[in-house]
Simulated scan of single mutants.
Amino acid sequence: MEKNASDNTELETGKAHIIVEIIEYVPNAVVIKTIIKKSTGNISIMSFDSGEGLTEKTSPFDTFAQIIEGNAEIVIDHVSNHLKAGMGIIIPAHLPNYIKPNGRFKMIQTVIKSGYE
């Protein structure tokens, strides 16, 4: 069951942050907090409670996903990728992808919109 909670308040600039502490787990939910949002792309941090994932989608832009706590399974074009904290993967534009529920974890997602003009 996918439940999303979003916080579109960007982080304070010019100040150091402990990334894994920016966002907390919420029972039975996926929480998304925007770190920075620009016309050329955005960076978000996400927390996934146990049993929570994201349904299949296709993005018109390349996306970089980096696990910062726990581990996750990211499926890109029907190929499963198991990532643990410290690992990242580029999800190419225009390929179907989803995140399978695999315990609690946190990740940073960076979407690059430039280069597609």
Rank of each mutant, 00 (worst) to 15 (best):
E52L: 12
E52K: 14
E52D: 06
E52V: 09
E52G: 04
E52S: 11
G53A: 10
G53H: 05
G53D: 03
G53R: 09
G53L: 03
L54A: 14
L54Q: 13
T55I: 12
T55G: 10
E56I: 07
E56C: 15
E56T: 15
K57W: 07
K57G: 02
K57R: 15
T58P: 00
T58E: 08
T58R: 09
T58F: 01
T58H: 00
S59W: 01
S59N: 02
S59E: 06
S59P: 00
P60S: 12
P60I: 14
P60T: 08
F61M: 02
F61Y: 15
D62H: 04
D62S: 02
D62E: 10
D62M: 05
D62W: 02
F64N: 13
F64H: 13
F64C: 13
F64Q: 14
A65I: 11
A65F: 12
A65V: 13
A65S: 03
A65L: 10
Q66M: 15
I67P: 02
I68P: 07
I68H: 04
I68R: 13
E69T: 05
G70P: 10
G70C: 08
N71H: 12
A72R: 05
A72F: 00
A72C: 10
A72H: 01
E73R: 09
I74C: 06
I74Q: 07
I74R: 03
V75Y: 02
V75P: 00
V75K: 00
I76K: 06
D77K: 03
D77P: 00
H78P: 00
H78F: 11
V79A: 14
V79K: 15
V79Y: 04
S80R: 15
S80C: 03
S80M: 07
S80L: 09
S80H: 11
N81C: 05
H82K: 14
L83C: 05
L83G: 08
L83M: 05
L83W: 02
L83S: 11
K84L: 09
A85N: 03
A85E: 07
A85C: 07
G86H: 12
M87T: 03
M87Y: 12
M87H: 15
G88K: 08
G88Y: 06
G88N: 06
G88W: 00
I89C: 07
I89G: 07
I90G: 04
I90E: 12
I90M: 14
I91Q: 03
I91H: 06
I91M: 09
I91N: 02
P92V: 13
A93D: 11
A93Y: 02
H94T: 03
L95I: 10
L95W: 03
L95R: 13
P96Q: 09
